[in-house]
Amino acid sequence: MPGGSFRSDKGNPAPAPPPPRPDNQHQHHQTRGPLPPPPPPHRVAPRAPVPPPPPPKLRRGCCCRLLCCLVLTIVTLAVLLGAAALALYLAFDPKAPRYTVDRLAVSAFQVDPTLTARARFDVTVTATNPNTRIGIHYEPGSDLGVWYAGTRLARGALPAFYQGHRNTTTLQLALGGQVQLGGAVVSAMQDAQRTGAVPLLFRADVPVRVQLGGVKMWKVTSRVKCDLVVDRLMDVSSSSPIKIKTSDCKFSIKL
């Protein structure tokens, strides 16, 4: 053995056994009983579907209120305009003008072998304004004509003038023209000539402005239609004037 060391005669002693461990596990199992089962694994619940947004009640409500306000405004304006029109009617008491064709002279009417008719009429028209507070401005651009069976025989124009309150104006008008007639129209005209009753139509479309006091209103078209029956048309060589047997004039406004 190396120096400085010693050895027991009895050899190396056996290692000491470890101290006994208390049987706590055995006691614990005896006192606690069996262990509870492990909890089930956690599962995430599926998300519920997102409900659709509610209908736009507020927007519909705003639209309904706006529509009601618009209708109320229109009704209010209509009532105010009606009241204003009634007030004007009561204040001015408007009456329709009257027109008559007093005289119709045929200074020329010829039908050549090609059935081309050349005509000239001298017409006397009387216009009466019965209103006490309303004047009538007859504007340029009028269109006058004499018709037979839907065919215009002559045309002319009315001079521009102003007709005051309670005024009667007599106008001397000259109408002329040239038109191609059909054989049926010429035959019908000759038959009416033999019976002494030739139907004619005098029509006038005249732009006018009504003046209420000192205010001149907007322009409208005054239409006059006169149904005439004359004793003859084609025989203009006779010295006796053409007679108007019947005359029926109607007045209307064309907006």
Rank of each mutant, 00 (worst) to 15 (best):
I134H: 03
R103S: 03
G135T: 15
V44I: 11
L86S: 11
W147R: 05
V146Q: 12
H137R: 13
R60D: 15
R59T: 02
L88E: 09
F109S: 00
P55M: 10
V75R: 07
T114Y: 04
W147K: 02
R120S: 13
T100A: 14
A105Y: 07
L70I: 07
S107Q: 08
G61I: 01
V146I: 13
F121T: 05
L144V: 13
A96P: 04
A78T: 12
R59V: 06
G145N: 05
P97D: 02
A105K: 10
P49T: 13
P113R: 10
P53F: 12
V44Q: 14
P97Q: 03
L115Q: 10
A117L: 06
P54K: 13
G33T: 00
R65E: 14
A87M: 11
T100F: 10
P49E: 10
H42A: 15
P38S: 02
V106L: 08
I134G: 04
R103H: 01
Q30H: 09
T100Q: 13
L90H: 06
R59D: 08
A78M: 15
V106G: 04
L67Q: 04
G33S: 02
P38G: 02
L66N: 07
P46T: 00
I136G: 05
T76L: 15
R60L: 14
C68M: 11
V44K: 14
E139K: 15
L72F: 02
Y99V: 09
V79G: 04
R103Y: 08
P41N: 07
A48M: 09
P56W: 12
